[in-house]
Amino acid sequence: MRMSAQHYAVVHALYRDHHGWLSHWLRNKLGCTQQAADLAQNTFIRVLQSRQLMQLQEPRAFLTVLAKRELYTFWRRRELEQAYLEALAQQPQANQPSPEDMLLIREAIAALDQLLNGLPPKIRQAFLLSRLDGLTHVQIADSMGKSVATIERYMKQALLHCYLAAR
């Protein structure tokens, strides 16, 4: 990441003037000082990466929006972890992955979920059937009661969505 001295000065001023306020705001949402501190830190990492700081007029509104995104990611991740552990608990002992695999899988689930965030459910389903289950487009079309042309359109939309989300 390229960062000019001016950009750095703006971030520094933001941090100095609003970090305490933001941590407090997050603590009210989370009820936990430690997590609030982590998310405040993540929020400022986002601030560093943002490219339009020079025009900033409402710093706290800007910070709140970035922090909400962090909060969403945090809660969604916890929701996914819980769902994963519950689903795993339904499986027999023989099917449990090793702790290393489990960690990788949890990370990848969170990453893929974030990538697919906002995709319409049908398109999400078609994408998962193709990329996870490895079904052919004809098989997906059959299982979803759609034409192959529709599935291919879904796939293109999903791929573009992932491309834009990953940038």
Partner: peptide, 19 residues
């Protein structure tokens, strides 16, 4: 996720359910 599932196939259904 697809390669994780090659190592332990039963993972697929779990991963799908979650996602």
């Amino acid at each position: 996720l697809q390669s994780a599932q090659h190592q332990s196939p039963a993972q697929l259904s779990v991963i799908r359910e979650v996602l």
